[in-house]
Simulated assay, not measured.
Amino acid sequence: MRPVKAILLALPVIAVLGGCAGQGEIDATGGITAVRSACPVVGVPAGTGDVTIFAPESSQDASAIDVVASMTNVRGTCTDTTDPIAATVTFEVRASRTRTDAARDVVLPYFITMVRGGSNVVAKRVGRVTVHFDAGQARATTTGQATGYVTRAAATLPEDVRKQITAKRKAGDEDAATDPLTRPEVRQAVLRASFEALVGFQLTDAQLRYNATR
């Protein structure tokens, strides 16, 4: 799953290199201060941020649309001082319905999944959020929350890789113009230590196909 609605957050960061220089600042002894976060990046996987319910379920005609809901205002908070590291994702669900004659509760399943290295799903939890419509009300909004966990060891770069990334480089040195991330072993280590916390609606196969083709 690759997020197309990637919502990058100002999550706490852990400095890879000590000292007083800030992110992206040029260090007085050469090189650029590097930072990376142990917290997962938060996003919504492609095709899972919206759900359409039909009545009857076997139809996908526009005239059969019953309820439409979208996930929005996705936000994340991260506690990176604990082990495991906890990433809590909050979101809003905005829904509309066709028939408004009576009060109604619509229960929508959603998921949070922890993805390592861009493609490896290491954990998934499914929850439910209820949208309440009063009689005569066509639109309603509610909020949801989900939490995912990452072990500190899994989100931490090996010491030898950290040293390669943060090594001081001076003009004229043989490796001064070489980006450490061009080395396959370094790039793979960074990828293995990178996580995403992805949330979306838990859709049926038919709902996924509808989102992909509408």
Rank of each mutant, 00 (worst) to 15 (best):
R99L: 15
F111S: 09
H132R: 15
A154P: 01
T147M: 08
A140K: 13
R183N: 14
A167L: 05
G136F: 01
V131W: 08
T143W: 08
I112W: 06
R125I: 06
G200W: 03
N120P: 00
T143R: 15
D134A: 14
V150S: 01
P158H: 03
R192V: 00
T142N: 09
R116P: 01
A95T: 14
T204V: 05
G172H: 12
R94S: 10
P158W: 04
R169L: 06
V131G: 07
F195S: 00
D175E: 11
R152M: 02
R94H: 12
G148H: 05
R125K: 13
T113W: 04
T204W: 01
T182G: 07
K124M: 10
L181W: 04
F195G: 00
K124R: 13
F133R: 04
F201R: 09
P158A: 02
Q164I: 07
L191C: 02
E92M: 08
F133K: 04
R162I: 08
Q137S: 02
V150K: 01
F111T: 05
P109I: 14
A193N: 04
K163L: 15
D134L: 13
V190I: 06
F91D: 09
K124Y: 02
V199E: 03
S194G: 08
L191D: 07
T156M: 05
T156I: 02
A193T: 15
A102Y: 14
D179W: 03
Q145H: 10
R128K: 14
N120W: 08
Q137F: 03
V122C: 06
T156L: 04
R192Y: 00
V150I: 14
S119M: 05
V161T: 12
T147I: 07
T143I: 13
P109M: 12
G117I: 00
V122W: 04
G118I: 00
D173I: 09
D105P: 03
E185G: 05
G172T: 13
R152Y: 02
V121P: 08
T182S: 11
P184K: 12
T204L: 01
E174P: 07
L203T: 09
L157N: 05
I112D: 08
P158T: 03
P180M: 03
T147C: 08
K168G: 10
A103F: 07
K124G: 07
A146S: 15
R139M: 09
A154N: 10
N120H: 11
F195A: 00
E196R: 13
N120T: 14
A171C: 07
T100D: 00
G144P: 13
R162L: 10
A123N: 12
